[in-house]
C-alpha cells in the first residue's frame, strides 16, 4: 500500500474501530455509569427516604429502606423545631460570604502583581507560597489560636475568618490565569493612560471571570463546610455555622433518634447541594479550564 493510500484510509480505519468498540461497549458503559452513580449517592438517597418515613420500622432493611414508609414531613418539622437551623444557616452565609469577598480582594491584586510586575522579593514570595501549599493549613491550629487569643478576638467571626482569607491557592490560581491573558489588551489600556490598578480591575479581572468565579465558589464551599477552625474559636452556640452547630447537635442530644438525625443531615446538606446544582455549570467548567 502506498503512503497516499494509507493516508486516505486512515480516518476511515479509525472510525470503524471506534464504532465497533462503541456498539459493543455502550450498554456496559451506561451500566457502569449507573452503578457508580448509585455508589456515590446512596447515603443521600437513604437519608432522604428515612427522613421522609414517618414510620421508622423499615429504615434498616435493604432495599425497602430506600422507599419512604408512611411518607410525611414529620421528622423535618421536628428538626426545624428543635435545632436553631436558620440561625446556623445565617451564620454560615455571613461567614462564607465575608470569607469569599476578603479572599478575592487579597488574592486578585497579589496574583496580578506576581503575573505582571517585577518587585523586590518576588521570587521569595513565590517560593513561600509554594512551600505553604505543601503543608495543610490545619498544622497552624495551635499558633493561630494563641495569636487570636493574644489579640482578644476569640469567639468572634473575625477570628473564624482571618486565617482562611490569605489563600495561597487562590493567589496561584489568579496568577496562572492572569499570565495567560493576551498582553496586547493590557498594553493597550496602559497606552491609553490607565494605571496598573485600573488595568487590573477594568481589563484583567473581567477577562478572567472563569477563574474569579471558580475561586469564589471553591472558597465559599470550603468556608461553608469548614469544621475544625470554627469549632476551635467559636463557643457560643448561636454564633456557630451550620457544619459545626448541627454536628454538635447531632452527636449530642439528638443522637437517640436515627430518623431525626438523618432528616437533619438532609436539611443540612440541602443548601449547599442546591447551590452546587445551580452553579455546577460554571464550577466544573472553571475547574476543567486547563489554565485554572
Amino acid at each position: 500500500m502506498s503512503t497516499e493510500q494509507l493516508a486516505l484510509n486512515l480516518p476511515a480505519a479509525v472510525q470503524t474501530r471506534r464504532i465497533r468498540l462503541g456498539a459493543l461497549a455502550l450498554p456496559l458503559h451506561y451500566a457502569a455509569l449507573l452503578l457508580c452513580a448509585l455508589l456515590m449517592t446512596f447515603p443521600f438517597l437513604w437519608a432522604l427516604a428515612v427522613g421522609l418515613s414517618k414510620d421508622p420500622s423499615g429504615i434498616w432493611r435493604f432495599p425497602q429502606a430506600f422507599w419512604p414508609r408512611d411518607p410525611g414531613w414529620y421528622w423535618f418539622g421536628r428538626v426545624l423545631n428543635e435545632i436553631p437551623f436558620f440561625t446556623y444557616v445565617g451564620n454560615s452565609l455571613l461567614l462564607s460570604l465575608c470569607t469569599v469577598l476578603a479572599t478575592l480582594l487579597l488574592a486578585i491584586p497579589a496574583g496580578y502583581a506576581l503575573a505582571h510586575m517585577e518587585f523586590p522579593g518576588r521570587r521569595w514570595l513565590f517560593g513561600l507560597l509554594l512551600a505553604t501549599l505543601m503543608v495543610p493549613m490545619e498544622i497552624g491550629v495551635v499558633p493561630n489560636f494563641l495569636t487570636l487569643s493574644q489579640l482578644g478576638w476569640l469567639g468572634t467571626y473575625g477570628a473564624a475568618m482571618l486565617p482562611n482569607i490569605a489563600s495561597a491557592f487562590g493567589v496561584f490560581m489568579m496568577k496562572q490565569y492572569f499570565e495567560a491573558l493576551p498582553a496586547d489588551a493590557l498594553e493597550a489600556a496602559r497606552v491609553d493612560g490607565a494605571n496598573e490598578w485600573q488595568v487590573m480591575w477594568r481589563i484583567a479581572v473581567p477577562m478572567s471571570w472563569p477563574a474569579v468565579t471558580t475561586l469564589a465558589i471553591f472558597t465559599f464551599v470550603s468556608a461553608w463546610n469548614d469544621y475544625l477552625w470554627p469549632s476551635v474559636v467559636l463557643s457560643d452556640r448561636m454564633k456557630m455555622p451550620l457544619a459545626v452547630g448541627i454536628f454538635h447537635d447531632l452527636t449530642g442530644p439528638f443522637a437517640t433518634s436515627t430518623s431525626l438525625v438523618l432528616a437533619a443531615v438532609v436539611l443540612a446538606a440541602l443548601p449547599v447541594l442546591l447551590c452546587f446544582v445551580f452553579t455546577q455549570r460554571w464550577l466544573l467548567a472553571g475547574v476543567m479550564d486547563s489554565r485554572a
Binding site: 487579597l106 491584586p109 498544622i139
Partner: peptide, 30 residues
C-alpha cells in the same frame, strides 16, 4: 517583566494586603 512606568514598590503595594494575613496566619504558625 518590568513595565515602563511601573515603579518597583507598586508591586509591593499590590501584594501587601495579602502578605500581612498570609505572614501572620500561614508563615508564622510554621
Amino acid at each position: 517583566m518590568a513595565r515602563p512606568g511601573v515603579r518597583p514598590y507598586t508591586g509591593i503595594l499590590f501584594v501587601l494586603p495579602f502578605l500581612l494575613p498570609f505572614a501572620l496566619f500561614s508563615l508564622w504558625p510554621l
